[in-house]
Design a binder for these strands. Structure first.
Lengths: 255, 255
DNA sequence: AAATATTAAATTGTCAACAATGATGCGGTT
DNA sequence: AACCGCATCATTGTTGACAATTTAATATTT
């Protein structure tokens, strides 16, 4: 009857939940249960703890997080929208597969969309938003100086995110942030490359400069090039990764 | 209301499967129940039977189609992905609202995406796909001659759909068809304009010509102009519509 | 022994009841 | 009369059981 999710979520259910606790645990006032596990499954997928292409068992997943299949199902539905999961009726959900052709499709689309975002941002960005972007650049420089690679990754996400926000186009935002971005993060996380950041930050700076000068055409061009650089990088790592996997496969078949 | 979709479920449980029929997706029987009502709610929303901006009651909707709240909920979730519904936790679902600014955002995004689709289609389209497109143009001419406006509407959807397919970019397809297209249809249905088709068909023809000549740049340009024409048209009708609604509102307030 | 038909198991889809939250209406106070 | 707190109601979120379907495992036939 009582939920046993104490291990993963919070174990404040110990002593006095005489009152319907209302979950006043200060931090986040319980949105919906589905949304809570959504982010957890998200990160599990992005980090590869749930391997790309693997089957997802609703029951097992639900039990893992100590909840019922209902919310789990809804989370999977949202993950499908985010392109992290593929579902087929009566068969179930699988983690998205990482392939070269899909990577190219994805980046091609992203390039066009973020190019568009840059053009819009150049004409619409507010001084506050611009200041925030420049702060971010400074942060990235500082992080780079300390060699903090993961924060750099996070910073890159923020950079693109803020430009998308500055575009002011609601549907563009929804398409990128709600639709493509998570899958993008998955590719980048699993095909990460150490020596890229230093160049990427320089490119970021030039993009912001173009936006600040209200030169949308230039900003768009620089952004598309920047993304193309990222694509090449990721593609290389992905091919390498898949070659390794194939080798391991044949090795297993021999033995 | 009793469910009368029992007729939809075929009783072919007897042995007549010589081969594993692999179930071509055109088969409408035995999908999931949620998918079946999804299309019904879809059309209800697009046609305005469920008015834009109105609240959706899960229970009532479920009863209307003679099913339980579970599948209804899933359908609403899919409708959210299609931008036809907006959901907020613990509050519920509303039909998307039709506003001028959203219309502009939507068409701006669509313009960029279908422009991209044209460029890709110009370089990748197969002879079969091209033949199908030209067949469609002929069909549209014929329908126009008979003054069959609704079929024209449907034909226009098909036209854009086929070019999107010919682009060959999976994520682009998913973004347009799975994401934006239904909302687009809603705007166009509720802000329809009679005298547009005749010009639109001519524009279609020129776009196909450009694609056939492998001139992606031109095809993209023509498509973006074509869409811009549609946007203007829809915007005009929408403003008109909202002015009427506002007038009726004030009238009601007086009495 | 290989391939196919049949049965059994595991998994997804659906339902109806229950819990938790937001919305509504009432009564009291200023 | 308007505002605020409180109780009630309606609606959404969640659960566990059940039905339908797919996947696997087994038996059967050629």
């Amino acid at each position: 009857m009582l939920k046993q999710d104490t291990t993963l979520i919070s174990d404040d259910t110990q002593v006095s939940h005489l009152h319907k606790v209302k979950s006043t645990s200060a931090d986040k006032t319980s949105t919906t249960l589905a949304d809570q596990i959504l982010v957890q499954i998200q990160t599990s997928i992005i980090k590869g703890e749930l391997p790309a292409g693997s089957k997802i068992n609703e029951q097992a997943l639900a039990e893992k997080y100590g909840i019922s299949r209902g919310p789990t199902r809804e989370a999977l539905h949202t993950l499908e929208r985010q392109r992290l999961v593929v579902r087929s009726p009566h068969v179930g959900a699988r983690v998205a597969q990482l392939t070269v052709s899909e990577l190219n499709d994805l980046y091609q689309l992203r390039s066009v969309l973020e190019g568009m975002a840059c053009e819009l941002a150049a004409s619409r960005i507010t001084p506050e938003q611009l200041a925030k972007l420049e702060d971010l650049l400074a942060c990235q420089d500082a992080a780079l100086a300390k060699g903090d690679t993961y924060f750099q990754e996070e910073g890159d996400v923020d950079f693109h995110y803020q430009i998308i926000q500055a575009s002011g186009n609601k549907h563009l935002q929804e398409t990128l942030v709600g639709g493509l971005y998570h899958l993008l993060r998955m590719y980048r996380y699993q095909c990460t490359n150490k020596n890229r950041p230093v160049k990427a930050i320089a490119e970021h700076r030039r993009i912001v400069e173009a936006i600040a000068q209200r030169d949308g055409e230039l900003a768009s061009l620089l952004m598309r090039r920047h993304i193309e650089q990222g694509r090449k990088n990721t593609e290389l790592r992905l091919i390498e990764l898949q070659a390794n996997a194939a080798a391991k496969e044949t090795l297993a078949n021999i033995s």
